[in-house]
Amino acid sequence: MTIFILVVVCYLLGAIPAGLWVGQIFFKKNLHDFGSGNTGTTNTFRILGVKAGIAVFLFDLLKGTLATLLPVFFHVHSVSPLVFGLIAVIGHTLSVFDHFKGGKAVATSGGVILGFSPLFLIYLLVVFFVFLWLFSMISLSSIAAAVAALIGVFFFPSIHFILPTYDWFFSLIICALALIIILRHISNLKRIKNHAESLVPFGLNLSHQKKK
């Protein structure tokens, strides 16, 4: 019964559409009607500003972390905490509070990794920000971090770097999270191919996207 309750709680926690609610309550704006129409961190930054973007990012990140740590707090050892983190990510992308729409899972997935392997998250953040500086695109940086996660989870244990041993279940969850992130960015990949992706106001823009 405890496991079932935690599953429901983690889904509902992940499903909280922070960006949507912040926009509606404090700015009288529905993020679905602006920018990319997404309710995640990136569109929140673009439409609602830096303060709202930071607040939504932290909430989306920490709800992934909390979902991963909840089974530890309640001494549930029969199911990996990563399962509950993954459920929160699913809730984030398919929110019952937003007609089963949601964000692109980057921040919440990062929160899951933060709750289980903080050093691995630091590695992914380095990759993310390097790509962000080189290409000026949050979407491409997110995809690069997802690919880097796949590479790292299989390669690092062989050289005992960050991940000292192979953990097949952690590898499986990382594969699932990376796949979700990449699939959620397919429309971004199409825009990148057409040199029409949105840019951040810094970096080298090496792919020569057209600035809007």
Rank of each mutant, 00 (worst) to 15 (best):
A18C: 14
H77A: 11
H77W: 13
K212D: 07
S198W: 07
P71Q: 02
L82Q: 00
A107S: 13
F129V: 12
T44M: 09
H99W: 09
M137T: 10
V72E: 00
A146D: 02
G37M: 03
L121C: 02
V147Y: 12
F34P: 06
S187F: 02
I151T: 10
L172S: 12
I192V: 15
L150Q: 07
L12K: 05
S171H: 12
V96I: 15
T2G: 06
I5F: 14
G23I: 06
V72W: 00
S109D: 10
A88M: 09
G203P: 01
L140V: 05
L204R: 00
G111A: 08
L206C: 12
A196K: 15
H99Q: 14
T65W: 09
L179V: 14
F155W: 14
G85L: 08
G14S: 11
G203L: 11
S207R: 04
H77P: 04
P157K: 08
F4P: 04
F27Y: 13
L13C: 11
A107V: 11
F57D: 05
T108W: 07
A178S: 15
F26Y: 14
A176K: 02
W168H: 15
P201V: 00
V130N: 04
I181K: 11
P201K: 00
N205T: 07
A176R: 07
S198C: 04
V22H: 13
L62V: 02
I182K: 08
G37K: 11
D60G: 07
P164S: 15
L125C: 09
G40C: 09
I182M: 11
K210G: 12
R191Q: 15
I90C: 15
P17F: 05
N205G: 13
Y166W: 13
L58T: 06
I122S: 10
S95V: 09
D33F: 07
Q209S: 02
V9M: 13
V83C: 09
F84S: 02
F120I: 03
A88R: 07
L125K: 05
N194C: 02
N43C: 00
A146C: 10
T44A: 06
K210P: 02
L69R: 09
I182T: 10
T39V: 15
A144K: 00
F170K: 11
V8T: 13
L132I: 07
H32Y: 07
F156V: 04
A145S: 15
V89H: 03
S95T: 09
N188I: 09
L183E: 12
V76A: 06
